[in-house]
């Protein structure tokens, strides 16, 4: 049964629509009761269109941005729950990456409308195998704030688009934000269930970003502060996904993005990637459209 057919069958199973209910006595009574009150009275209702209050403006870019964000990172604790693969026995790629899923408290700076746009913005799009996971560093924020970073170490199998630095062609580390609490124990559990098979990664080199940032500072006539220089140096060895949209894994007979936030940050690019049934077919598509 096709999607359109499913939609059609679901529509045909629609329960009563209650057309004309508003003309019943009970409905009229409800309206009369409401109109007998004054509209100015305070209410506790929250309309659905009202945006939530300003949330964590998290930019998973380099340490320069991350260091700025760390003071704001009070909400998401990616490893705060016992949902690691080792804890529930799941071995799938989705289960492995689930603790790294971008939390709904994060608002990303970058979003892409299509696979092609994300590939264009990436340093490289690769197929790769996960070979390790480890904690990489702790970025200090204001006061006692700490941002723990986690690195997924991958072995590139094929560069589908763009280019990797020479030292990254055999192996590279993709950094994720692990939250404000030490994730070492959870990472150790994840080590025990590394996903098998290839996945498609839309990667950004943090070294390139650092260089660009320095160039921008220079153009603006600014000298980078010692902290900025230190942050840029700290970023250099790592890559990141261009956004939470930038990873696709094989999950049974399907391709899925295991890290995208299903709240605010999802979009057509994820749907576009997930329409493929095999990661290899998605890789073919990226390769063909470069």
């Amino acid at each position: 049964m096709k999607n359109r057919d499913i939609h059609h069958v679901l529509r045909s199973a629609r329960p009563p629509a209650y057309d004309g209910w508003h003309n019943t006595d009970e409905a009229r009574q409800i309206l009369a009761n409401i109109l007998s009150t004054t509209p100015e009275e305070e209410t506790h209702m929250t309309p659905p269109t009202r945006r939530r209050p300003a949330r964590i403006a998290l930019i998973a870019a380099g340490a320069v941005a991350a260091a700025t964000a760390v003071a704001l990172l009070a909400g998401p604790q990616l490893f705060g729950q016992d949902n690691t693969p080792g804890s529930n026995g799941q071995q799938s790629a989705s289960a492995f990456f689930e603790p790294l899923r971008f939390g709904t408290g994060m608002r990303e700076a970058e979003q892409y409308d299509s696979l092609e746009a994300a590939a264009e913005a990436a340093s490289a799009v690769v197929t790769a195998e996960v070979v390790d996971i480890r904690t990489t560093r702790v970025i200090k924020g204001e006061g006692s704030d700490r941002l723990y970073m986690i690195g997924v170490v991958v072995r590139p199998v094929e560069i589908l688009d763009g280019a990797l630095g020479e030292t990254s062609q055999q192996q590279l580390t993709v950094e994720f934000i692990g939250g404000g609490e030490d994730p070492t124990a959870a990472v150790e559990q994840m080590k025990a269930s590394l996903p098998e098979g290839e996945s498609v990664w839309f990667l950004r080199s943090k070294a390139e970003e650092g260089e660009r940032h320095l160039g921008e500072l220079k153009q603006a006539g600014r000298t980078p502060s010692p902290d900025e220089v230190k942050a840029i140096e700290g970023d250099k060895p790592y890559y990141r996904v261009v956004s939470s949209q930038g990873l696709f894994v094989q999950e049974g007979q399907e391709v899925t993005n295991p890290i995208v936030s299903e709240d605010e940050t999802s979009d057509a690019m994820v749907v576009e990637g997930e329409k493929y049934d095999k990661v290899t077919n998605l890789a073919d598509h990226v390769r063909e459209t470069r």
Partner: peptide, 20 residues
């Protein structure tokens, strides 16, 4: 999407996954 309190993009992804 507005009824469900999410962005149109998130709605598309949720619908896609639910149908799958």
């Amino acid at each position: 999407a507005k009824v469900l309190g999410c962005s149109p993009g998130a709605y598309a992804v949720r619908l896609h996954r639910a149908r799958r």
